[in-house]
Design a protein around this nucleic acid. Structure first.
Length: 154
DNA sequence: GCCAACGTTGGC
DNA sequence: GCCAACGTTGGC
C-alpha cells in the first residue's frame, strides 16, 4: 500500500464536498500536469490512503483522509469541449489524462497547518515543505504519513 | 495582489 | 534540441 497527498482548493472541492457526496466518493479529475498524471496512472492503487490538502485558502494544510476506491481510468473531462479541462489533442482511444476515485475516510478536527508541517523536524521529504513544489499529486513516505496522521488527529 | 518557482510553447 | 517568452501555481 502507498500513501499520497492530493491538493485541492476547498472553495471548489474540499474535504466537506467529498464527505457529502453520494457514497462519499468522487472522481479526482482535472489533473493536467504530466508528472502528477504519471503518478495517477501508474502508481496510485485501490486501497492507497490519501491526505486531502487544502491550498489557496485561509486554512492551508492537511484537512482529511481519503482512500483510493478505484485505480486510474481516463479522465472524461478531456473529451468534453464544454469543460475547462478539455484537451483537443486527446481522444477516447488515445487518452492523455487520467483520474482515480477517492472515498472519504476522515475529516480532522482541525486542519493540520502547513506552518506546523514545515516546523516538524521529522518531515523533510514531503513535497509541500520543499521550495517551489507545485505538484497536485505527490507521494508520502510511510514514516511521514504515520507521523502526520498522528499529528493531524491531535 | 505580489511574485518566486516552476511548466509549457513555439520559433529557430 | 535550445531557450526566451509566456502561463500557472500557490504561499504569503
Amino acid at each position: 500500500m502507498a500513501y499520497w497527498l492530493f491538493k485541492s482548493e476547498p472553495d471548489t472541492f474540499g474535504i466537506d464536498h467529498l464527505r457529502l457526496r453520494p457514497q462519499q466518493t468522487e472522481h479526482w479529475d482535472g489533473v493536467r500536469n504530466y508528472q502528477a498524471r504519471n503518478f495517477l496512472r501508474d502508481e496510485v492503487k485501490q486501497g492507497d490512503l490519501v491526505f486531502i490538502y487544502h491550498s489557496s485558502c485561509k486554512d492551508v494544510g492537511i484537512a482529511g483522509l481519503a482512500e483510493v476506491s478505484r485505480a486510474a481510468y481516463p479522465d472524461h473531462s478531456q473529451f468534453d469541449p464544454e469543460s475547462k479541462y478539455f484537451d483537443p489533442k486527446a481522444s477516447p482511444d488515445n487518452p492523455r489524462w487520467f483520474m482515480v476515485d477517492v472515498t472519504f475516510r476522515e475529516k480532522f478536527k482541525r486542519v493540520l497547518p502547513l506552518s506546523i508541517i514545515k516546523a516538524m523536524p521529522q518531515i523533510t521529504e514531503l513535497g509541500v515543505v520543499k521550495k517551489g513544489h507545485r505538484l497536485s499529486i505527490m507521494p508520502v513516505t510511510e514514516a511521514e504519513f504515520e507521523i502526520l496522521l498522528y499529528k493531524a488527529r491531535g
